[in-house]
């Protein structure tokens, strides 16, 4: 479905995740963060850049992986994105919600 975020029309799924990363920009990230009651600090952006890079390299994301990324440890990750950190961070980053493989 279509949604207008930060004055741009983008494709999202029923949970509000962008379905085409090419449509993402920083303003969209900030807008989605605001919807989740988060104001993005430079540390947030470091995490967002990290998850976007992992996505581009087709590496599946897990909370464990974030904890070992060298960007943040798990406690800091929860402090930055308090409710469901991986789901929130990926949503802001414009990449798919991690599947939690089966």
């Amino acid at each position: 479905m279509e949604k207008i975020i930060a004055q741009k029309t983008v494709q999202v799924n029923e949970e509000g995740y962008l379905t085409n990363f090419a449509e993402w920009n920083k303003e969209i990230g900030e807008e989605i963060a605001k919807e989740n009651n988060i104001v993005l600090s430079p540390k947030h952006w470091e995490v967002i850049n990290y998850v976007q890079n992992e996505f581009k390299n087709e590496v599946p994301l897990t909370i464990r992986k974030i904890g070992k990324s060298g960007v943040v440890d798990i406690k800091e990750f929860y402090a930055l994105f308090p409710v469901g950190p991986l789901k929130t961070a990926t949503k802001i980053a414009g990449i798919p919600k991690p599947a939690g493989c089966i």
Partner: peptide, 9 residues
Amino acid sequence: TPLSGAFTK
């Protein structure tokens, strides 16, 4: 569970 529900699908 660490998942968002009882199962993944």
